[in-house]
Write a protein that binds this DNA or RNA. Structure first.
Lengths: 342, 342
DNA sequence: CTGAAAGCGCTTACAG
DNA sequence: CTGAAAGCGCTTACAG
């Protein structure tokens, strides 16, 4: 491989001039620039990543800390990883993925090491719990990081999240506008709440608020992330509110079981029961029968904001003082209709 | 941050001795080693990744080239990425993800650059087509790489793949053993075959072979990756073979539509129609009603073999001369039963 | 607008 | 078993 020194010699300029041309980090005359660029092209020059990192003290790499437990179908996670890599690349950065493995304390220590070794300049957590030990620890040692999802305390922390409150409100508003007066909510598993999974906790509260705000009667239930969870959730809702005509579903893996159970109970979706899915992975609603009307996770925008905010932090720019909340996008389907008259 | 020089001074040894202790790259007396290790612990020493790369000409990073189009629910992809990161970490390596963006030619050039810049030591393609331009180009420039999936020509190339032939055979054998004599096969979309998607092409051929081998009548059909695809596929199969009693399903996203269509036609699964899913993402079969008996993608083993083979190549060790084929694992379900008598 | 030089923190022959 | 030193290929003050 040709080095910068080779290029300099070839172009008849100094090493530093080549560097300045490449990095556009000081003014260079057009003539000189042209000579350098020609030399680079001729020699097939590629800058060396390690040398650059060593001299500049920047790895130009950010770590994406993967969630240790999968909550959904995985489509959202792979979308986020893909998009993060794209955005990073647009900023001349790389993305390294880092799997959580041990306790939160141990993971935090390893992630800190990653930064101390200069392997990465900053960290995006793809999921955080409300009381995440990793967040607290990295904050203490001043590692630049952004969370996808919000810990309970967000002051001074850069966070990007789905706007669950808005999604729940939009869902309830939409159903209320269709004439529904008794609406159920199917959340993630109760275990998810116990371990401090933010979306579950936020959605529960947001649903109570939204029901009040839109003057409907709301019934909430938890559901395990499988077909049986969906079956049980529908039974629980109809047990508690027999006149219920619509469901907001925030648990895509329970969704298929819920639809099957509605069928088994002789309920037609949407004629007898409207189902509005929220925070679903892209395209999942389209797999169901009928196709689920959905508010989809804005994976691309979440990833973009997270990466761009992190790169700002790494460059020493200000972090946003408030969490960045991204709305879900409506994916049309055939699972919502007005309730039967009477 | 403390440097190796600091550690050396602190321990009263030379810089090189510290390096040899860390890398275990030449014998060191126990006493010296102990002194050095104590000094490292005391100073909180962390080796610098960039300096190490520059001096050793190894980035200790491998690139994972993400598929540009998603074929399934994404669960498999995120499992593979996670597992690859784990395996790489166990070998003291990092994983950088690289999204495909342009044409195969352009992507190949960028991936080549990645290696020339020293940013990565080798590449794992998470999906290749039968006639993949990236593979051909990187082979020419001698970049170490491993493919997940097999190109049409595998000689001299390191490949890791699902053993589709075995999975199809196992599925047909299992159904035949239950007494089924007319078996259908639901493949991916016809478009996937057109663009040279290996699994589709291999599965089609393997199904014909397996039907012959097990003395059953086989009917094959393509299905788009959505509910409508599944509906159409079942109709097509029953149109061509009205006495069909079992289906091998290799298209998880069409599966939900297929089950719904069976129901609509008054067919009970599994009493009237057995459904055996193959090459499914982990856990997806459990979402359906009834729970689908499935042969799941062995994501973890695929990732492990791919990463370990690549690291072998990077170290200059021999690549396996034959593709490494990994069998699917059976995930039990309730969708397979003997055909109704008569 | 351009150059000469120090320095980033390691690995690894070369020597003993 | 250990050390002194060259060298990896850049960035970036310092000077003019």
């Amino acid at each position: 491989m040709a080095t910068m020194q080779d290029v300099a010699r070839h172009a008849g300029v100094s090493l530093s001039t080549v560097s300045y041309v490449i990095n556009k980090t000081r003014p260079i005359s057009d003539a000189t620039r042209a000579r350098v660029e020609a030399a680079m092209a001729e020699l097939g020059y590629r800058r060396n990543a390690a040398a650059r990192s060593l001299a500049s003290k920047r790895s130009r790499t950010i770590a994406l800390v993967l969630p240790s437990t999968e909550n959904a179908l995985g489509g959202t996670l792979s979308e986020i990883v893909t998009q993060a890599a794209r955005v990073a690349r647009a900023h001349d950065n790389h993305v390294a993925v880092w799997p959580g493995l041990g306790s939160e304390e141990q993971d935090a220590a390893e992630i800190h090491d990653l930064v101390l070794e200069g392997a990465v300049d900053g960290v995006v957590f793809l999921e955080v719990s409300l009381d995440d030990a990793r967040v607290a620890m990295l904050e203490k040692v001043d590692v630049p990081f952004v969370t996808l999802g919000r810990p309970a305390r967000t002051e001074g922390r850069a966070c990007v999240d789905i706007d669950f409150e808005a999604a729940v409100d939009e869902a309830v508003a939409l159903l209320a506008a269709q004439g529904h007066r008794e609406i159920g909510f199917v959340n993630h598993s109760e275990a998810s709440r116990t371990r401090g999974y933010g979306p579950s906790v936020r959605a529960e509260a947001a649903f109570a608020d939204a029901a009040l705000r839109h003057g409907v009667s709301g019934t909430h239930t938890w559901a395990d992330e499988d077909a049986a969870g969906g079956r049980g959730a529908l039974d629980a809702l109809l047990g508690a509110a027999p006149a219920l005509t619509a469901v907001v579903l925030m648990n895509e893996t329970a969704g298929f079981g819920l639809l099957a159970q509605a069928r088994r109970r002789g309920l037609d979706v949407p004629a007898d029961l409207s189902v509005l899915a929220i925070a679903t992975s892209r395209g999942v609603g389209a797999l169901a029968e009928p196709q689920l009307t959905s508010l989809e996770v804005p994976a691309e925008r979440l990833a973009r904001h997270a990466v761009e905010t992190l790169l700002d932090l790494v460059e020493g720019r200000e972090a946003p003082s408030e969490p960045i909340l991204v709305p879900c996008a409506l994916a049309p389907g055939d699972s919502v209709a007005p309730p039967r008259a009477g």
